[in-house]
Design a protein around this nucleic acid. Structure first.
Lengths: 239, 239
DNA sequence: ACAAAAGTGTTCTTGGTACACCCATGC
DNA sequence: GCATGGGTGTACCAAGAACACTTTTGT
């Protein structure tokens, strides 16, 4: 900071402080549908309306620590893919007080989380394209998060974070079709995906999706990390 | 925000407030070299050291407004390409007080700005790969900004923001070579650039770079905006 | 006349895209 | 035996990569 070259005591005036919060856009993928974990307010203000899950950033934590704390409180999960999205800081975004929010988005394996915790916090999974109007600027956050997810999933293998650890190729294709809202050619998708050589084939089939059953795979994180450092371009399609 | 479903009066406790600042990573391009506008502190703390240019976010402005205000105070420029980079919020990042910074990066035409203003604020242009250690976590911010610039310049035509409004193809290629730290094939670069059909040729030459002189062009912002809405992929090379 | 940068085409290779049928199984 | 989703190969086309010489002009 420069603070216009003022000495310390002029800068750090308490009235310059602002409430800092974080809101989490938590994505999940269930039965071919992309979902968001949202939250129904039990108390005023905005009682009964939906909002994202969030919290103030406390004096003893960084913004991303706050986001992870929130995520853990609601889902019980740790070590989740989570990234800072963007800061929302319009002066009138929160009618209660001047408050900025540093939004984060997370991708979780929808069958991994603690259902009791989720229920206890009045959190519900809502399909992304059937969301009602949310509180404050949370709609905007979600829109931004979706765009970010699309851009990111296109160039980085973060899609795997939304699938079970063992997954099938058709599941993976469904996920991408849900994220990008378009159908993809099975043969080309497979061919490209396999050419990356980042899937470890397992000798098991998942029969939940069809009678024939589809082979299960694991994503090779270690190999990807190695390739990534050398500037590897994970990208499953062009347009 | 959820604030754990607490009523209002428990949430908005003044001690939850934090100092919020913004720091600006201001890129310029001059004579084939990528530069940063940094700032030499005249007063304690950190007197004599270099830092980015920043300020607190004031009660009546959003974070991006604060960043634009700072940019204008130092360079006199408005309507500049500027984007939020990332929030820096480690609890001990600023020894003076708990203070988070919402960093922004900007691209300016280095011959456009107000040199008197810059001088008055003890700001100096410093080559990006000859930067000394800066104050606090500003080195980290710069590293992040450089990575962001590279990713962004690869897929969006933001490079033009660093060049004069009238520029030559060789200038443009030099810029990309400076950003990506590698040499590019002249013929392929030109071919690709021209195939995008986003440059308006002018019937003038710039002779500052050679005896022969190189033709000047303007970037067609309007056309780009139209194409962008339809999902246009500006990208000058692959690897 | 020579130095220094601008400008220009072709070939090869890679990778994307389009497209249709057989397979395995549970019911 | 049939319905359902899983799995496979080929031909065409577009775009990237490699590569060397001529042009212009100031000195």
């Amino acid at each position: 900071m420069d603070h216009n070259n003022l000495p310390l005591n002029d800068i750090y005036a308490p009235e310059n402080r602002i409430y800092v919060a974080t809101d989490c856009i938590i994505f999940g993928f269930d039965k071919g549908i992309l979902k968001l974990l949202v939250f129904e307010r039990r108390v005023e203000p905005f009682k009964g309306t939906l909002s994202l899950i969030g919290s103030f950033v406390k004096p003893n934590e960084a913004a991303n620590e706050a986001a992870r704390r929130v995520l853990k409180e609601i889902t019980g999960l740790e070590n989740i893919f989570m990234e800072e999205l963007k800061t929302y800081s319009n002066i009138d975004r929160d009618p209660g007080a001047r408050c900025i929010s540093i939004a984060h988005y997370a991708l979780i394996r929808i069958d991994d989380y603690d259902k009791e915790l989720v229920a206890k916090h009045d959190a519900i999974w809502c399909e992304v394209d059937k969301l009602p109007k949310l509180v404050l600027d949370h709609d905007l956050m979600i829109e931004d998060a979706l765009n970010r997810l699309r851009r990111k999933a296109r160039f980085y293998p973060i899609g795997f974070e939304l699938l079970p650890k063992k997954f099938t190729i058709p599941q993976f294709q469904n996920l991408y079709e849900a994220i990008f809202q378009k159908t993809l050619d099975t043969r080309n998708f497979r061919k490209k995906l396999m050419s990356l050589k980042l899937l470890i084939p397992l000798n098991e089939k998942d029969k939940s999706g069809s009678k024939k059953g589809a082979f299960l795979y694991k994503f090779d994180y270690k190999k990807y990390k190695r390739l990534e450092e050398k500037g590897f371009n994970f990208s499953l399609f062009k347009n």
